[in-house]
């Protein structure tokens, strides 16, 4: 027993990047307590792409906020790297459903906000920002203001902003939820490319089954109210992922399995 724990500590590279142990979150409201998350246990390896999949109201966004340290949790422990999360964790990068671009700054200036606040060397950061814009095919738009950009372009800029400081952890809360289907496909591909070129762990919140399967190494299925981890499914599809894979039997087997889980959870009701 002792030997085992020693071994585990020695092999620190095996130690999960994110450790969520027995975490609960209760919101106090006038109508009483709302249990958003109940007894969440989840470990995420370094470099892993994990999707949190669930219907609205299952607390998946709350889970991301806890991980970012932007909302305090009620019970349990969350560790990212060596750090116990007790307040805002500026080591991560964060992308919301809304792009939250600052209207008064150009695309490049929006990304550079990250460097200004973190006091990164400006010239190196600018080069990195341009490189990121290039990677998402926005090289020609660095001087465009947000209102001059389409929804998909804006969200790409916001992803670049989240990645400027090479965060070891990227948190995304339904980042493509407000986009049309085709733009969404393109941004998924952009994101996968960025993940390949930047070593990082990704926690991706979504309510799209296909999106979760397409992007992830693992999909965490959450049950609604109070949010619990219902199942964790390994997605054993080759990388790089291609759009055509979505039609292949391997892929559809995963989406069918996930759909069945949500059926048993009562999220979907079908006529018999």
């Amino acid at each position: 027993m002792n030997d085992m724990s020693l071994n585990l500590e020695a092999a620190s590279s095996v130690k999960p990047h994110i450790r969520i142990s027995r975490v609960s979150k209760t919101f106090k409201t006038r109508k009483g307590d709302v249990h958003a998350l109940d007894d969440i246990d989840l470990n995420i390896k370094r470099g892993e792409f994990v999707s949190i999949l669930g219907p609205s109201g299952c607390g998946k966004s709350t889970l991301m906020m806890l991980l970012a340290g932007l909302t305090p949790y009620s019970k349990g422990r969350i560790e990212v790297g060596e750090k116990l999360i007790q307040g805002p964790n500026p080591e991560g990068g964060i992308v919301f459903q809304q792009d939250v671009l600052l209207e008064w700054r150009t695309a490049l200036q929006n990304i550079m906000m990250q460097a200004e606040i973190r006091k990164l060397p400006i010239e190196a950061a600018k080069a990195r920002a341009r490189e990121l814009l290039e990677m998402v095919s926005l090289g020609d738009f660095e001087n465009a203001y947000p209102k001059e950009l389409s929804g998909g372009m804006r969200q790409r800029v916001s992803i670049c902003r989240a990645l400027l400081h090479r965060p070891p952890l990227l948190l995304m809360d339904e980042p493509f939820g407000a986009l049309d289907a085709m733009t969404r496909d393109q941004l998924q591909l952009d994101l996968l490319r960025l993940c390949r070129d930047n070593e990082m762990t990704v926690m991706f919140i979504t309510h799209s089954i296909a999106e979760a399967v397409f992007l992830s190494d693992r999909v965490v299925v959450m049950s609604p109210r109070p949010g619990r981890v219902e199942r964790i499914i390994d997605i054993d599809l080759p990388r790089p992922r291609r759009l055509a894979m979505r039609e292949e039997p391997q892929f559809t087997a995963y989406t069918r399995e996930l759909t069945e889980i949500f059926k048993t959870l009562g999220v979907f009701r079908e006529e018999v």
Binding site: M65, I94, V100, L102, Q114
Partner: peptide, 10 residues
Amino acid sequence: EMLYLAQSMG
């Protein structure tokens, strides 16, 4: 979200 973003940048 904007204020959360500011916080997340430190």
